[in-house]
Write a protein that binds this DNA or RNA. Sequence first.
RNA 1: GGGCGUGUAGCUCAAUGGCAGAGCAGUGGCCUUUUAAGCCAUUGGUUGAGGGUUCGAGUCCCCCCACGCUCACCA
Length: 509
Amino acid sequence: MTNEKQFSDLEQNRIDKLLRLREQGMEPYPARSERTHTNLEAIADFEKTEKDENSEPVKATLVGRIRSMRPMGKLVFTHIEDGSGTIQLFIRANDVGVEQLDLLKKEFDLGDFIQASGDLFRTRTGEVSLRTDSFLMLSKAITPLPAAKDEEVDGEIIRHAGLTDPETRYRQRYADLAVNPEIRKIFQIRANVNRAIREFMDGNGFLEVETPILQPIYGGAAARPFITHHNQLKQDLYLRISFELYLKRLMVGGFERVYEIGRDFRNEGVDRTHNPEFTQIEFYMAYADYNQVMDFTEKLLAFTAEKVLGTTELTYQGKNFDFGKPWRRIELKEGLVELAGINIDDFPEAESLAKAMKEKGLKVDPKSPRGKLIDDLIGEFLEPTFIEPTFLYNYPRDISPLAKNLPGDPQIVERFEGFMGGFELLNAFTELNDPIDQEARFLEMGRAFASDSDDDFHPMDEDYLNAMKYGMPPNGGFGMGIDRLVMLFADQANIREVILFPHLRTREE
RNA sequence: GGGCGUGUAGCUCAAUGGCAGAGCAGUGGCCUUUUAAGCCAUUGGUUGAGGGUUCGAGUCCCCCCACGCUCACCA
């Protein structure tokens, strides 16, 4: 604030206004404000009394950011916006005096916060407005907000030349939110989703817990971690990639139903369904298997939809869904026969399966284990077709090291994933609680990925095995991406739209 | 990381290799029921950064940066 060169001409202009306001005795950043009604309360109060001819005029002191200003000589119309909505101020020289009106016209700008007092009435065109008899500056904006003008045509708001550049919108989300009120609705939905899920979980006897984000060993998913360092302990730590192994330690500890809602961090590619940090809910339910978790999932999503949207039906990217109906359930092997034309039972080895996939024109990594190839087939042939809510169940063992075997088939585990809108929304399984088998799985994974790359995908978590050796009740576990769920409820195609401050590369200079 | 695309005034966008423009915002006026208010006048540019070709580059070439879409990666 000391170097004047950091202000543009437009900003310097407003700083001059700010100084003039102060000279004339109006503090541009007063410590206190008053308000008797929110804007929408004021309109509602007025409409209540309007029908009664004997009622006194409704007096109000309102606050908000100036969103439009239409000066017409000795009369100014402005719209101000507070958290509840917008209302029109009707400010006349007759009511506030010529000097005050000049002050308003000369020193107040779009983006400033104003406080106005007066009484409510209806203008000739029928809009409830505040006939202002006094006003104050509450906060002077120095940088002009990106100019946006709204036009209402048949109840629909058309925005002219607002802020649309995605880079600016994400980098300066504050400006995006300030100028595009509908963006704020997405985050209202997000908050409502979280609240609904908590309400459902709490109502079903789950305990909400918090487990470490900084972990000495990461696990519970196949993802590369972010690494950080604790100075005093002289120890590298990982930001968690899942909550799974800690939450299941709590099963050992005697909690029968636990859940956590929090942030996971995965050091991987960014695209429209992946952000490096994202929010998950995981829960673990003792004495349940994956079939019960499937049923529970349907109830959870139906409840959440009802709470957030007021109905179980929703529209996503032009398609309609109903969370009130049971999800499609497709057995993985059968789904692949049907949609990929490959019966994986015919290809018991990675080599033969890879060959069959190449014949279908797929690119195949020669080092991939069989389970990875099957996962590739899912991504290629199944996932994009799963627009309707769909459970895909019975996954290959070698890509599911924490899931329990399906009795009678050593290659298959009791695991399902939930898809919707063409992307994966959730993942769940009957949890492996046999410590001997678990250790074998860790070793298998270590071998499977040892040749894969320099990345150490699956560090052995000895302490987790120790916990399991004390005895873990049979349980079903579940993880779901909250961001992706919010995408569905807010009808957004890109995960960044549902994250307030999505990560962008830092700009040089 | 690969491919394709974008980057011009505060915002949204124009400009065959030939004077860098418009609308809105801003500034100065007029205007006492407007709502994309209107009318008159007017300011505002290192065309993302750097290099090259050319008499002349926003435009063509090279390199870099950022963003978008997409592919790869992501159990």
